[in-house]
Amino acid sequence: MIVCQLAGFLGSGKTTLLIRLGTALGRTGRRVAIIVNEVGEVGVDGAVIESNGLRSVEITEGCICCSLSGSLQNTLRQVSAEFEPDMILIEPTGLALPGKVKQIVRTSLIGEERTFTICLIDAFRASKLFAEAGAFLSRQVDGADVVAINKVDLTSLDVREQVENIVKNIAPCTPIVFISAREGQGVDELVSLLGDA
């Protein structure tokens, strides 16, 4: 079993990518479980995911990387025992730190073969976001197994290159994939990376 988290700042496209990945992985015959957590307690993402034919477990009333770390551990144990998935996809809040989520997964003792972290960056807003909240975003990028630069359908090649340079300055050795979760571009590459994980 692989535990994959889709990290990234508010509005980076996590839910859209989660739906793409969940659907694509399901088509390959893998049993996929989805755990979703978001910054507001009134969940929107769980309803969106279910409207796309996927089932999910929502964790509300806090953030799984800090105040609800115990809930995440309990949910991971329950999902892995009852559903026996090949893969668990976790969508943390846009304000979660993936390094902390990874640590919580490891201490859940669910017998995962490995964890895999995809960090999404919104290419359209990257320069603005890094200017306003650069330190926080850097902590999200740091420690990812792959950085997915999203919304490339909305950006020029020059902008993509600028965003790629920002990411390389933070995490020079981390692979980068250019995607459009909305259009489905690059999703197959991520599915392959997950398959190889």
Binding site: V39, V42, C65, C66, S69, A96, A133, F136
Partner: peptide, 18 residues
Amino acid sequence: MSENTKDEAHAGSFGLRV
């Protein structure tokens, strides 16, 4: 886990179901 990332990011949130 004493660190609260919402505070760290100086962020607020509000949700409503109608």
